[in-house]
Amino acid sequence: MIVHPDFDPVAVSLGPVSVRWYGLMYLIGFAAAWILGRCRASRPGSGWTALEVDDLVTYMVLGVVVGGRVGYMLFYDLPALAANPLSLFMVWQGGMSFHGGFLGVLTVVWLWGRKTGKGFWGVADFTAPLAPFGIFAGRIGNFINGELWGKATNLPWGVLFSDPRAGGVPRHPSQLYEALLEGAALFTIVWLYSAKKHKPGAVSGVFSLYYGIFRFAVEFVRLPDPQLGYLAFGWLTMGQLLSLPVIALGLWLILRPAHEPAAA
């Protein structure tokens, strides 16, 4: 058994300004996307400039934050949003959804593809390898905050969280499972796959497929959000339900004929 270090949620305090670990992890994720994007743009024949990467990442930050927050309130806490619409802006209370952020980024990709003439899949395939590092950082932030833990376990790496709602029993560190799978493993798979030229949408398809599979699998040992519980069968979670169309999208993008025209 491992005892959670019970980190101070504030990483750095500078007078009245406090920087929380979770926000810092987001910042690290965006910085990594920027660095990796510039690295990809520097490749011969990439068709991208450093300035285009700078602008795209800026808009992606907005897509992730706005989409992630709106998605969380719609998918996971709709009654609270209906009771108090202003709760949408209470970001200090927590609540971000990957699937909402994913939709936010897709919106940015579509708009950016039209603006620059690169097309939707041209932008999506370029950005797909940039995202997993941010997912990794976000999940580490979840672990630092001692939130989104898993089911009780007797495994030697079970973590004892200090939050009374954790019941005082060792639990699966599902945040770390997701960091390793949705972050490190997904980055390795997509980055290596994108090193070669593929049909439009294929890189995005690999990202979607493996993210959906990894997320669906980890949800079996992660506790569902308490306000929702299990949706069906005593095991189906909202995270799994939202991952199904992501998996389906990935399969379609990978398996569709190469000559099929990509969406603009």
Rank of each mutant, 00 (worst) to 15 (best):
T188K: 05
W121L: 09
V17C: 01
V218R: 06
R139E: 00
K197V: 15
A248G: 10
E147L: 03
V64S: 02
A32L: 13
G146N: 11
D8R: 12
P44R: 06
N84G: 10
W34C: 09
F187E: 03
F207W: 15
R40W: 09
I35P: 09
L24R: 01
L130I: 08
T237W: 11
Y211H: 11
Y230D: 07
R69G: 10
L14K: 00
F207P: 01
V17A: 15
R114A: 03
Q240F: 10
R40F: 12
V64Q: 05
G134T: 10
L86G: 05
G229T: 06
L86R: 13
D55C: 13
P200A: 07
Q240G: 05
E147R: 01
L255V: 14
Y26F: 14
L223F: 08
M25D: 12
L160A: 09
G150Q: 00
G234M: 04
T237D: 12
P79T: 03
W110R: 14
E178R: 04
K115E: 00
G95M: 06
E182D: 13
D8E: 13
S42V: 04
R222H: 02
L251S: 05
L148H: 10
S204D: 05
D6C: 02
L51I: 14
L176C: 02
L253R: 02
L223E: 15
G138P: 02
W252T: 02
S42Y: 00
Y72D: 06
W48K: 00
A166M: 12
V246Q: 02
F187W: 07
S194E: 07
G117W: 00
P44Q: 05
L192P: 04
G94S: 05
L81C: 04
S243D: 03
G141V: 05
A258R: 11
E182V: 14
F30N: 08
A137D: 01
G15N: 04
M238Q: 12
V61T: 14
G234S: 11
F7G: 01
G45K: 00
D8A: 01
T58K: 14
L130F: 08
G29N: 12
G234K: 07
F126K: 01
P79S: 07
H99I: 13
Y72W: 14
